[in-house]
Amino acid sequence: MATEATFTLPADRFPLGSVFEQLPDATIELERVIPSRDALVPYFWVRGVETDGIEEFFADQPEIRRIELVDSVEDEHLLRVEWASDHDGILHALTETDVPLVEAVGTDTQWTFDVRGDDRSDIVSFQQRCRELDVPITLRNLHPLTPTDSTVEAVLTEPQREALVLAFDRGYFDSPRAVTMEELGDELGISQQAVASRLWRGIDQLLATTLPETTRRPEA
């Protein structure tokens, strides 16, 4: 049975983690990817930072061979990265075990990874490979995607669903709003930028699922 799992990883144990020392308010989100043994995750977003030279903050990372800015709009920046071939870490564990990445969001506190396997054994293989690579992941949530799951629930990651439910319960979508995004972040234990990212991605997924006649924008 298809299974989804949520793992966390200390911020400094992922290649991009040291950047938070210079950009503590930033949120980094990896573009979701279907594993390929020929390439690691090639794109990621940096949100919550207004600068004309965002790629310069990543240029000295030893795990990165080359990085370039693809697009930038206000405080959101899309970058393409070429990883060093000799780097062993959680991304290699994903590609080597063929476990798809659903979502990965990093803050100065930690990284949160949502992955999905065809069955529970895929998740176990991924955990085992991380242990072999000395990647200190912590399992936070594990649940099967059963046939009784609604289509809407199935398209949301657990962090997206948690953020949307909390925002709705606390009155974030009321007019006027009964709670701020910063207050939601305090309750979830994440930054305001991370809350914004989860709400935006979750709403995007819900609209694409419930309004199939709409035309989605091209993926970056």
Results as ranks from 00 to 15, higher is better:
Gly185Arg: 04
Glu187His: 10
Arg201Ser: 07
Gly202Gln: 01
Arg201Gln: 14
Leu207Thr: 04
Thr210Ser: 14
Leu199Ala: 05
Ser191Pro: 09
Glu183Gly: 09
Arg201Ala: 07
Gln193Pro: 07
Gln192Ala: 13
Glu213Met: 14
Gly202Trp: 01
Gln193Met: 10
Gly189Arg: 04
Thr209Tyr: 06
Ser191Val: 11
Leu199Asp: 01
Gly189Val: 10
Leu206Met: 06
Ile203Leu: 05
Ala208Val: 05
Leu211Met: 15
Leu188Lys: 02
Glu183Ala: 15
Leu184Glu: 02
Trp200Lys: 06
Glu213Leu: 13
Glu183Tyr: 06
Leu206His: 04
Ala196Thr: 09
Ala194Gly: 07
Ala194Lys: 00
Leu199Trp: 02
Leu199Val: 00
Asp186Phe: 07
Ala208Gln: 13
Asp204Leu: 00
Gly202Val: 04
Leu211Thr: 15
Gly189Glu: 10
Leu199Cys: 01
Thr210Ala: 14
Leu211Gln: 15
Leu188Val: 08
Ala208Ser: 14
Arg201Val: 02
Arg201Pro: 00
Ile190His: 03
Leu207Lys: 05
Leu184Ile: 12
Leu184Trp: 05
Thr210His: 11
Ile203Asn: 07
Gly202Ile: 02
Gly189Leu: 10
Leu211Pro: 05
Glu183Thr: 14
Thr210Gln: 13
Leu211Gly: 12
Asp204Cys: 01
Leu188Asn: 06
Leu199Glu: 01
Gly185Phe: 00
Leu207Cys: 07
Ile190Asn: 06
Leu188Gly: 06
Leu206Phe: 01
Leu211Ile: 10
Leu184Gln: 07
Gly202Asn: 01
Arg198Gln: 03
Glu187Ile: 11
Leu206Glu: 00
Leu206Ile: 03
Leu211Trp: 12
Ala208Phe: 09
Gly202Ala: 01
Ala196Phe: 15
Ile190Thr: 00
Gly185Asp: 05
Glu187Asn: 11
Leu188His: 03
Ile203Glu: 06
Arg198Ile: 07
Gln193Lys: 15
Val195Met: 02
Ala208Gly: 13
Ala208Thr: 10
Val195Tyr: 03
Gly202Asp: 09
Leu206Val: 04
Gln193Ile: 11
Thr210Cys: 10
Asp186Arg: 12
Glu213Ala: 14
Ala194Val: 07
Gln192Pro: 10
Ile203Thr: 08
Trp200Glu: 02
Leu211Arg: 14
Arg201His: 04
Gly189Pro: 07
Trp200Pro: 00
Gln205Lys: 11
Glu183Ile: 02
Pro212Thr: 05
Ala194Asn: 12
Gln192Asp: 15
Ala208Met: 09
Ser197Val: 08
Ala194Ile: 00
Leu207Pro: 10
Thr209Phe: 12
Ile190Val: 13
Ile190Glu: 00
Glu187Trp: 04
Asp186Lys: 11
Thr209Ile: 02
Val195Asp: 04
Ala196Asp: 14
Thr209Val: 06
